[in-house]
Amino acid sequence: MATGGRRGAAAAPLLVAVAALLLGAAGHLYPGEVCPGMDIRNNLTRLHELENCSVIEGHLQILLMFKTRPEDFRDLSFPKLIMITDYLLLFRVYGLESLKDLFPNLTVIRGSRLFFNYALVIFEMVHLKELGLYNLMNITRGSVRIEKNNELCYLATIDWSRILDSVEDNYIVLNKDDNEECGDICPGTAKGKTNCPATVINGQFVERCWTHSHCQKVCPTICKSHGCTAEGLCCHSECLGNCSQPDDPTKCVACRNFYLDGRCVETCPPPYYHFQDWRCVNFSFCQDLHHKCKNSRRQGCHQYVIHNNKCIPECPSGYTMNSSNLLCTPCLGPCPKVCHLLEGEKTIDSVTSAQELRGCTVINGSLIINIRGGNNLAAELEANLGLIEEISGYLKIRRSYALVSLSFFRKLRLIRGETLEIGNYSFYALDNQNLRQLWDWSKHNLTITQGKLFFHYNPKLCLSEIHKMEEVSGTKGRQERNDIALKTNGDQASCENELLKFSYIRTSFDKI
């Protein structure tokens, strides 16, 4: 039985969820670079991206490699990797027998973001014989899940209580170790020597080791999670996991709180800001991140802002960003909400898709409305799209047979046209069989910064309504002859009103 693990408890099935942008060198404390989270699957090609990484700022997932063999891993080693800020997950990587050479110096898994409450997941690794993470000293947050690894031993010899604050939620089941077939031998045991430290858990006094050649490092209890030197002297209180010299914040392997210019500090002093819960960055760093993602459509890219001495992905609820200094300031009234469309555009074809934009005031991208039916549609669209004030790209209304009016965009005031449909149009209306009105132009103002209007096959939309939009939106004169079809717009509506004058002759039985 794995020490510190839980057996036999019912657990939810383990679901495996399925960018080499360097964020800056980590400095003297770390020998390499800070790398983003990685999802490495199918083959070993991307694994080489770990070569210079000291910190993975995010998670590391290595999974679904069915053609790899043990010899493929023999020359692979990433000794610079010290810390993973989120979680480490391995799933069905064939041929991998140990992690001792792959990650010989991995010391800390912070667990800032977890995989279903777990910071370390080893699942269905069919050839893994031992973990071998002999320098792993601290899992700051989260638990361990090690399950269905039929060859995995050296679990009962690990004292997880020396690595985690609590072992109650560890789930370590259905491994070879369960069948008591392992016969784990710690260093020196074969020669009758006791080389590794022994600890007591559940009444068992057991030597602690990761492999037959690597003991588990056990520091004096007084050192807590700070770690200790090879001689057993406690590291500085700002260290986490390990250090090369005692009581020196510049000799830590990793930091308990924050890293700044080669030393570990309790908090980031001005003019620095907390970033990702582990390091200090200056304003320029946060500003660069903001600008890199301002026009990016890459998933996970955030326009970072500053709030409460932190550089964070977005302002919290009730705050909006001051564009001059990136500071989050309290909103006066309802907060603006910028919604970034991942692929640059979004099609609204149902109430469900409209709900995804609920509360958005600025759309960074283009909207395509293609709704053919739905219950209580006008009210639903207004509830979900009615706060949109600005669209950076274009607005396209296409084959939306259920629409009679666009009044559900009740606050839309600006279409920038930074991206144009077919390279020309910022407003595009095609084949809307029941569209009769755009907006009530006596109450609604709309500016279209650039781009043209396109109207074709809107049989109940009168040309007068379209011409009014040209005047109000500032697009009059931009359109070419064929942009607004004269014969297919309003051709099934009563669009022309003329005053009919009647004269009559009164007659009676005795007068003409």
Rank of each mutant, 00 (worst) to 15 (best):
P336V: 14
L90G: 00
C235L: 01
L155V: 15
H307E: 05
S54Q: 12
G32T: 10
D72S: 07
L60W: 00
W278T: 13
T250Y: 04
E151Q: 12
N179M: 06
L88S: 01
Q216I: 03
G111A: 02
Y134P: 07
F205H: 10
E57K: 02
V144M: 09
S323D: 15
P197E: 06
N322M: 03
D159L: 07
E238P: 01
K148P: 01
M125G: 04
G333Y: 11
L63G: 13
D159W: 15
T229Y: 03
G183L: 07
M125C: 06
T329Q: 15
G95L: 02
I201D: 08
K310W: 14
G188D: 10
I62G: 01
L164R: 06
N257A: 08
T157I: 09
E238G: 06
L240W: 00
R141N: 15
I312S: 08
L240Y: 13
H290M: 12
H28R: 04
E124I: 00
S284P: 02
C219T: 02
I62P: 00
H307Y: 09
L133E: 01
S296W: 01
T189G: 14
H48Q: 15
E231K: 05
A119F: 01
R263M: 10
W278I: 04
L128H: 01
S237M: 05
S77R: 10
G111R: 00
D277A: 13
G241T: 11
G318R: 03
K80T: 06
D39L: 06
L260W: 04
D75W: 05
P313D: 10
F285C: 04
P334W: 05
D248H: 03
H59W: 04
C153A: 04
I185V: 15
C215M: 15
L76V: 09
P70H: 08
C328K: 03
L81S: 00
C196G: 12
V173C: 15
I312P: 07
L88P: 00
A230S: 09
E49G: 05
Q303E: 15
E124P: 00
C293Y: 02
G37D: 12
S112R: 10
I109D: 00
C223M: 02
A198Q: 02
P187E: 14
C215D: 12
F66Q: 05
P313R: 07
H302K: 01
W210Q: 08
E57R: 03
H226I: 08
D75G: 02
H290E: 02
E33R: 14
N170Y: 04
E180A: 09
C215S: 07
G58T: 01
E238D: 14
L88M: 11
H212D: 15
E180I: 03
C328Q: 02
L128M: 09
L99N: 01
E130L: 04
T140A: 11
E151R: 07
D261R: 09
L90I: 08
R297G: 09
C268W: 00
S98T: 10
T107P: 00
P220Q: 08
Q245P: 02
H214T: 11
R113L: 06
E151K: 14
T157P: 08
K67N: 06
P36L: 08
Y319F: 13
V265K: 04
K100A: 07
S161F: 11
D248F: 02
D39N: 15
N195T: 11
A230F: 10
T199D: 14
H212R: 09
G262S: 10
P197Y: 08
C335I: 04
L88W: 00
G58A: 00
T85A: 03
Y259I: 11
S143H: 14
L114W: 02
R256W: 02
D247A: 08
Y30A: 15
K224D: 11
E238Y: 04
T250C: 05
E57P: 00
A190E: 05
I312M: 10
V167H: 08
V218F: 12
L326E: 14
M137K: 10
G183E: 14
N202W: 09
G183P: 10
T85Y: 02
L131R: 01
C264W: 01
N242Q: 14
F103Y: 01
H212G: 06
V34E: 05
T199K: 08
S112V: 11
D248R: 02
H307F: 08
G132P: 01
C215I: 10
L99F: 09
Q61Y: 02
V253L: 15
K191M: 12
L164D: 12
M65L: 07
Y273V: 12
G32W: 05
E238C: 02
R145G: 03
L29N: 12
K67Q: 02
M38Y: 08
N295D: 11
P316R: 04
F258K: 02
P249A: 12
N202K: 07
I158G: 04
K80F: 03
K100Y: 08
L29P: 07
N175Q: 08
L96N: 01
L164K: 12
G142H: 01
L174H: 15
V305A: 11
E130H: 12
T320C: 14
D72F: 05
T157N: 12
K193Q: 15
T229M: 12
C35L: 00
E49A: 07
L289P: 04
P246I: 14
P197R: 13
V305S: 11
